[in-house]
Write a protein that binds this DNA or RNA. Structure first.
Length: 419
DNA sequence: TCTGGGGTCCTAGGACCC
DNA sequence: TCTGGGGTCCTAGGACCC
């Protein structure tokens, strides 16, 4: 049996831990630049605020109903995530951290006295007591069914007490007939539309389609999903592995129209991405830089360009990566073209212990040492203490975060004082 | 005026090799 | 006039996830 444990309205719940006055009140959390809604409390959902709602469209509704809103505080959410996951790890040996707020657990490997249900309840109440974060748990024979069980637990909290188990065929069929096809894990907007056109509306309908049709139209992944929904486990827990791509991208607070400005941002993104790369002790051997115009402007033709660069040597040096990123941007940008968003993706990532040396380019050992020193300093004295001269982080163009909560758990100066 | 960011997997088709 | 077959690697693009 598998379980999926998922934190309820995670970002909002993190904010509420230090603001209990916001319990039972509508709360939302906003994206970068306070652009749109990325998390909502149940009360905010009931007001009809959808996921991804642009702030400028919903500001009126939000103010009208006294919805509390926060700028995203990822330092806080990341820290809470680590705390929740470490409690799960104490209870269960076999887990897969699936996202910042979700974890799969292999219950079959678990030595559990009594019922799985009681065990899950105990886990849930411990997490709530130790961290203040409410969670829901779905239990089923496969990961895809555990996802659905989790949605049932969340949808009917009174009846399920936040834990629901699909443990026989009758419950499985009932759950499949209950769930709308677009809410099934692995069915996105595109497939949902295609399936709806064929009169497929529930998870159950989907399992009635032929294997060959699903394989042909939805690849091998679609077929796996069908088996999973039928109770045949195809997806196991996955090992945590190094990232195969590392990207940093941002929308700008306004359109940029000069190479100098865009180049400076790209340099900062490159440095940030290199830092992530070094953190997982890897190097990369190619990168891609992209820029695009404001796609929401209906009266302008969309502009999108990307440039791939193969690096002469594998590296994790901010200096090297930034240098090539700036070369890439020169290839694709022309002066005057307004750019709203840009980013960098590092690819062909490998562990840094197996660096391939290039016949014509020396491995820059001194840069390796320099990066190590910079990382240590920034870790100790705060982000951006040392940075490349080619960009001025945080000062000139700090992103808009007008409603940022304190970093209660990761910054000494922000810690709560109890009088 | 104002619309997020960071990932994964799979497949088709072209380049290239013997 | 007739012009092989089988394989791998790489990349771009499309789908999905949170």
């Amino acid at each position: 049996m598998f379980a999926l444990l998922d934190c309820n309205n995670f970002y909002v719940s993190c904010e509420r831990v230090f603001r209990p006055d916001l319990n039972n009140k509508p709360v939302v959390v906003l994206s970068n630049n306070d652009g749109c809604v990325i998390a909502r409390s149940n009360e905010a959902k009931s007001l009809g605020i959808p996921m991804g709602a642009p702030m400028f469209e919903y500001r009126k509704l939000i103010e009208q109903h006294n919805v509390e809103y926060f700028s995203a505080n990822f330092a806080l959410y990341g820290d809470f995530s680590r705390r929740v996951m470490s409690i799960v790890a104490q209870f269960c040996s076999d887990i897969e951290v699936y996202s910042i707020d979700e974890v799969f657990i292999d219950f079959s490997q678990q030595f559990i006295n009594g019922s799985l249900n009681d065990f899950a309840q105990e886990l849930r109440s411990t997490i709530l007591q130790w961290t203040g974060i409410p969670v829901s748990i779905g239990i089923a024979p496969t990961k895809a069914l555990a996802k659905i069980a989790n949605q049932i637990a969340k949808k009917f909290p009174e009846r399920t007490q936040h834990v629901y188990m699909i443990d026989d065929d009758e419950k499985r069929i009932k759950a499949l007939k209950w769930i709308a096809i677009e809410d099934v894990w692995g069915i996105g907007r595109r497939y949902a539309r295609k399936l709806n056109a064929l009169n497929i509306h529930t998870g159950y309908d989907f399992t009635q389609l032929s294997d060959s049709w699903i394989h042909k139209n939805m690849t091998i992944q679609g077929l796996r999903l069908k088996k999973e929904l039928q109770g045949i486990s195809c997806l196991k827990l996955e090992e945590v592995s190094d990232k195969k791509n590392i990207s940093v991208s941002r929308s700008f607070e306004k359109e940029l129209t000069t190479l100098a400005d865009i180049s400076e941002r790209i340099s900062a993104f490159a440095a940030k991405a290199s830092e992530k790369l070094r953190k997982q002790q890897s190097v990369c051997s190619s990168l891609m830089v992209f820029i695009h115009s404001n796609f929401y402007k209906k009266n302008e033709a969309p502009f999108y360009r990307q440039s791939y660069i193969n690096l002469p040597v594998q590296t994790a040096s901010s200096i090297e990566i930034s240098k090539y990123a700036k070369m890439a941007i020169k290839n694709i940008y022309f002066e005057g073209q307004p750019i709203k968003k840009a980013g960098i993706i590092l690819t062909n990532i490998a562990p840094n212990k197996y660096i391939n040396l290039n016949l014509f380019e020396a491995y820059k050992e001194n840069q390796h040492q320099l990066m190590k020193t910079i990382d240590t300093i920034n870790q100790q004295y705060g982000e951006h203490t040392v940075h490349l001269a080619s960009h001025e982080p945080s000062l000139k163009w700090k992103t808009l975060q007008q409603r940022l909560s304190p970093r209660y758990t990761t910054q000494w100066s922000d810690i709560l004082k109890v009088k």
